[in-house]
């Protein structure tokens, strides 16, 4: 049996190399990495006017040495994030399915979409739990470890966590590095001094602009890379 099946076209090294090459080509044909990055960039940019033109619900205000501090609930913004992110994941799933079907393939995007939606639910649950616990540490800010956890489970952080899953599904190191870079920006916010004199409710705009810009640039970069790499 060995003598009949191993030589020539059945050389194990060649068979394995061929199988790996075919698998790589399938993965390449399934990739639409620019789509989630572009859609999530739009969702992030869309949050800016929502924060700007909605009023947070303020309660339990206390006078401090340099003004006053209040418990704030950005009701409209939170509902925006939950709805927009779930819709975004539906659009992403539809886009991946459509592209894969047109290329004669199935898609492996479902775990990414489910993780994304699960993280939105987790983010909402953490937010609700924080309200139920009546903002522990108030009026002091929470410890930095709690703030870090909050940023990670914040909708912008949840976007980055879900992208890690997409990187694993697509076996794409570039996307993994991008997602880690994005998470670093989300977890360690960049303060360029913007927005201080922009008036009320602009406080979130600079960071959202940076996050959205990063996603947009990533989307453009992956789209260009895909055009160059796809076999003709």
């Amino acid at each position: 049996m060995t003598a009949d099946s191993v030589p020539a076209g059945g050389d194990p090294r060649r068979l394995l190399a061929d199988a790996r090459d075919l698998a790589r080509r399938v993965r390449l044909a399934q990739q639409v990495t620019w789509l989630p990055l572009l859609v999530l960039a739009l969702v992030t940019f869309g949050a800016i006017p929502v924060y700007r033109f909605s009023q947070p619900v303020l309660s339990d205000c206390q006078a401090m040495a340099d003004g006053q501090v209040c418990k704030a609930w950005y009701q409209a913004a939170q509902f925006y994030w939950w709805t927009a992110l779930v819709l975004a994941y539906v659009v992403i799933a539809g886009g991946y399915l459509r592209v894969a079907r047109a290329r004669g393939l199935g898609t492996r995007v479902l775990p990414y979409v489910l993780t994304g939606v699960a993280l939105v639910v987790l983010s909402a649950a953490v937010s609700a739990m924080w309200s139920i616990l009546d903002h522990p540490y108030y009026p002091d800010p929470p410890p930095s470890s709690v703030q870090l956890l909050f940023r990670l489970l914040d909708p912008t952080g949840a976007i980055g966590l879900a992208l890690l899953v997409l990187a694993w599904l697509e076996r794409r190191v570039e996307l993994l590095l991008f997602a880690l870079g994005y998470l670093a920006v989300v977890l360690v916010p960049i303060d360029l001094g913007w927005g201080t004199g922009w008036g009320p409710n602009w406080a979130f705009a600079p960071q959202l602009t940076i996050n959205g810009g990063l996603l947009l640039l990533g989307g453009i970069g992956f789209a260009l890379a895909q055009r160059l790499r796809r076999p003709q």
């Binding site: 061929d18 199988a19 075919l22 698998a23 399938v26 004669g104 393939l105 199935g106």
Partner: peptide, 17 residues
């Protein structure tokens, strides 16, 4: 082996591909 590899990676694959 190629058919099985592609079908495994793609979840489902069309005849033409």
């Amino acid at each position: 082996l190629g058919i099985l590899t592609i079908a495994h990676e793609a979840r489902r694959v069309e005849f033409g591909y």
